[in-house]
Design a protein around this nucleic acid. Structure first.
Length: 458
DNA sequence: CGAATTTGACCCGCGC
DNA sequence: GCGCGGGTCAAATTCG
């Protein structure tokens, strides 16, 4: 029955005199009924649409979840692979021989294995991407963090070994070579944060406390690296009247990481921050970039010092620092760069036995280097970013880049992101028994900069 | 008043 | 063994 017939039948039963009124009433009720049903239909349609959207969303989430699960499983397999890595030099040699056709200098990657790289290379071959392949060869080998390992040609290492005392790591080489690169970045004094292998390594290896030094133009007392630091000492080191401040990571009470902050005597605008140790706790997001950087640089250092004795390192512009690939650049915007270009600070490595140090120079001012320092010349640059490769064909992780840019690069790029202005006031200038301390030229009174937060740079 | 910083003293490794 | 210098400790001081 239609809506119209229903109304008409009612009016027909009642008398003619009332017909007009009844018709009017019926028209009104018909209208409201129509409107009501229309609304219901609209609601039904919108609900159906919503359900459809939800289903679509659900499908997307399902696919994302399966992707995540897949990634997780591959990572797990990857991790198991690391756990069963070769334990001695012979194994390394055997592994190296198997890979002798490949360019196997240590390199750094974040999140991709060397095997994957090599697989990718094959794909490039198939696609006749020879240029890309050439560059991708630079990325083989060492990876940051969990999958950090050597895959270098041991014979090449031996051949290239430099006998000079400063570079003499013959003894440690054999020990180092079986170990992940990153974790020798710890002190024997420090709490155990590695596995048994690392502990053995630390016991066997007299060389300890690899350091990563970062030079950056900075007008505040310390750099914003995302971590929380507490100052525990200050001293004036020989050869630099500017006091050196000692900080300890306070994110975790047991964290062994320390840093030293000192102004460069030659150029007071340059702040030299030296990191030592590895965090044994989860880091704030803003701190991960710096931690990755220092950790990676430490890896580079240990790989270099223990295995290649500098020979694997070439000029920065040749993009091969034992497989670490950097490029100098004047461009602030990492994202605009080609995927396989990277940004090299002036980099030097001190192979001091007690404190092997890698220096990343993010300033335009030439670095002062010690006699035992090998400096890789690079052009001057007004602003520089540091980045580590993920894969030649894949742009560096955007999150990493953004994180690094915003938290570290920002300052290095000439956009200070520090929480306190630099002042040269508030000096105490008291002399202690050591005869050189407490000038406090650069130390703010009641400085809170050791609490390095999420200073946003806009 | 609690927390962070300052700073004098001390420890330790290294070179002579 | 001694002196020097780097690094750390911990009491005193400062600040919010």
């Amino acid at each position: 029955m239609s809506r119209g017939s229903f109304g008409n039948s009612l009016s027909t039963r009642r008398g003619r005199g009332k017909a007009t009124l009844t018709t009017t009433m019926n028209t009104n009720s018909r209208d409201s009924s129509l409107t009501y049903k229309k609304n219901q239909e609209d609601q039904l349609n919108s609900t159906k649409a919503q359900i459809g959207e939800a289903k679509e969303e659900n499908e997307k989430l399902k696919s994302m979840l399966s992707k995540i699960m897949k990634d997780y499983q591959s990572l797990q397999m990857h991790f198991q692979g690391i756990s069963h890595k070769p334990q001695n030099s012979k194994d390394i040699i055997a592994t190296s021989i198997e890979q002798e056709e490949e360019v196997d200098l240590v390199s750094l990657s974040l999140g991709r294995s060397s095997r994957e790289f090599k697989q990718d290379e094959k794909e490039y071959d198939q696609n006749e991407c020879k240029d890309i392949k050439k560059q991708s060869k630079l990325f083989d080998g060492l990876e940051l963090g969990l999958d950090c390992r050597f895959s270098l040609d041991f014979t090449e290492v031996t051949k290239n070994y430099d006998d000079s005392p400063e570079n003499s790591f013959e003894e440690s080489k054999k020990e180092h070579i079986t170990e992940p690169c990153v974790q020798n970045y710890t002190s024997s004094k420090m709490p155990r944060i590695c596995g048994d292998e690392d502990e053995d390594f630390l016991q066997q290896n007299p060389q300890k406390k690899a350091r990563v030094s970062i030079r950056a133009v900075c007008d505040t007392t310390t750099m914003n690296d995302g971590c929380q630091w507490r100052k525990y000492g200050q001293k004036i080191a020989k050869g630099n009247p500017c006091p050196r401040a000692y900080y300890r990571c306070t994110v975790s009470p047991s964290c062994p990481v320390r840093k030293q902050v000192q102004r460069c005597f030659e150029d007071m605008s340059i702040l030299i921050t030296t990191y030592e140790g590895t965090h044994n706790h989860p880091l704030p997001f803003s701190a991960t970039a710096m931690a990755s950087t220092t950790s990676a640089a430490a890896s580079m250092l240990s790989c270099t010092s223990s295995s290649t004795s500098q020979q694997g390192i070439t000029d920065a512009n040749n993009n091969n620092l034992n497989g670490f690939n950097f490029t100098t650049s004047n461009c602030n915007n990492l994202a605009t760069h080609a995927p396989n270009t990277f940004y090299l600070p002036k980099t030097s490595i001190s192979t001091s036995q007690t404190h092997p140090t890698i220096t990343l120079d993010f300033t335009t001012v030439p670095a002062t280097t010690s006699s035992s320092t090998h400096t890789f010349s690079s052009q001057r640059y007004s602003s520089t970013s540091l980045n580590f490769s993920t894969l030649p064909s894949t742009p560096p992780s955007s999150s990493f880049i953004n994180s690094f840019k915003s938290q570290v690069g920002a300052s290095y790029l000439g956009r200070p992101c520090f929480s306190q202005p630099f002042t040269s006031n508030n000096t105490r200038n008291t002399e202690d028994s050591d005869g050189a301390r407490n000038s406090n030229m650069w130390i703010q009174k009641r400085s809170k900069v050791s609490h390095l937060g999420f200073d946003s740079v806009t």
